[in-house]
């Protein structure tokens, strides 16, 4: 596969930079919905700890799902929901 074809493929962008960005947005959004726990630190620590796993799940899903439109839809839903949560957090 030529480099030009790779760069023009939607899967490359979704599984590459978009997956990384989405993992970051998910990690940040998790501070809002993840239970704080008794010490009120779980919502800060656990998203950080889980970041590599979140990325791996998002990456392999984007890489392996045969329907790229479904990947784009799922990514949009995940990103949208977490951005809304973050927006509420900042407005509050």
């Amino acid at each position: 596969m030529s480099i030009k074809r790779i760069l023009l493929s939607a899967r490359f962008w979704l599984a590459g930079p978009v997956a990384f960005l989405l993992s970051m947005i998910t990690m940040m959004g998790m501070t809002v919905w993840f239970p704080k726990g008794e010490a009120a630190v779980d919502n800060i620590v656990m998203p950080l700890v889980l970041f590599p796993i979140i990325w791996a799940i998002i990456f392999f899903y984007a890489y392996l799902d045969s329907k790229i439109k479904r990947v784009a839809l799922c990514f949009s839903a995940l990103a949208g929901s977490h951005i809304v949560l973050l927006a509420f957090q900042f407005i509050k």
């Binding site: 726990g37 008794e38 010490a39 009120a40 630190v41 779980d42 800060i44 620590v45 656990m46 700890v49």
Partner: peptide, 18 residues
């Protein structure tokens, strides 16, 4: 004292393992 926070927590225990 746990390694993070003031009381023992799941987050602190996970971090202790890493």
């Amino acid at each position: 004292k746990p390694s993070i926070g003031t009381t023992p927590s799941f987050g602190s225990a996970s971090l202790d393992l890493i």
